[in-house]
Design a binder for these strands. Structure first.
Lengths: 183, 183
DNA sequence: AAATGCATGTAAGACGTTACATGATTTT
DNA sequence: AAAATCATGTAACGTCTTACATGCATTT
């Protein structure tokens, strides 16, 4: 028999606490700086989920105010470590979901003008160039840790966004060379 | 002033009807064969959303049974064409979301063994190899339409999944060469 | 006769974001 | 004195998946 399944947000929270993140606020900040590009979380999920994880006995929280400011510090229980260890095991049906509105617009772009299609690809490229720049600035700060988990996902994320940017650039050139209405 | 905003599932439905898909069932089948890898939709969303779009005056449905089997056929109204045209315009803040559980496991993989990390990357590669194979078989069927919308998104999807597969393969080799515990 | 495909739909629950609300501490 | 940061939380709403239920038509 195995430990009960973690909810989606529970997974990232448990992992973050295992990495030493202590408060809901702390977890949120760190998620935004590290896993956001492949696994996001909002306060509206995090705080209720911390309660549920505590009720389930996977974490324990202690009130540790800073001056007059309320603050709850969490750590893993043995059950929490076990649940995290179970979840960490590879599985063939792990979640992989993409929702890309620019690609959807591109998919339907035969319904618009060819000029609109090119502008859509350009907007797409610019958005991914921004994300790429953010990821690259993170990489610069984490020199020498590229064989560790966070370094590996960062490297993969950079590769993916760079791939999209390059495909967009190449496609922009290709479409510009083509006759606008070759039926 | 502009047309009212489309819901997420409304976007793909309106576009699919514009492409000639007539029934909810038809839309679902086609989504699964074309946009699924970057924009999915389920029956539980599609049928209620068809009602809402009709109530909003963006599509009209007619009952056209096949023998004794109920069947409702939809088409766009002028308002629907206008709403679709508006949405088709590029926007810098278009939705782009990824949720990749294998990457999350990889991110936290310092908490497990290095052998587990490699198995995780292998599982990840195998999953994406499957998706890649499916996309490639679609590409084989759509020869000569690669400058049209669906061809472009298919090409991009293939590139992305191929990129992931290659990164996994390269990283598997790299990690196999490394000492298992170089602190 | 059975299996597959066509076709529609709902109900329950899980999941998620956004906006709002509050207030202390620290930095500028 | 103001702005930014630390810190917690909720309510409303939007969205989505899953599982279930039904039944005809076509193919094997």
């Amino acid at each position: 028999m195995s430990t009960p399944a973690l909810t989606p947000t529970g997974r990232v929270i448990l992992g973050m606490i295992a990495l030493g993140r202590q408060t809901g606020y702390d977890i949120k900040q760190f998620v935004d700086k590290s896993t956001r590009h492949f696994w996001a979380a909002s306060y509206g999920q995090i705080y209720p989920e911390l309660r549920r994880l505590e009720d389930a006995g996977l974490i324990t929280g202690q009130s540790e105010p800073t001056g007059g400011r309320a603050r709850t510090v969490y750590e893993l229980t043995d059950a929490g470590r076990a649940a995290l260890g179970d979840w960490l095991e590879p599985e063939p049906d792990a979640i992989f979901e993409v929702r890309d509105e620019s690609m959807l617009k591109l998919f339907f772009s035969d319904l618009g003008t060819s000029e609109q299609r090119i502008r859509n690809i350009r907007a797409m490229r610019e958005a991914h160039e921004q994300t790429l720049a953010q990821l690259c600035s993170l990489e610069a700060k984490s020199e020498g840790h590229l064989h560790e988990g966070p370094g590996l996902t960062l490297e993969l994320g950079i590769g993916l966004h760079r791939g999209i940017v390059e495909w967009c650039a190449a496609t922009e050139r290709r479409l510009a060379e083509e006759p606008p209405d070759a039926g």
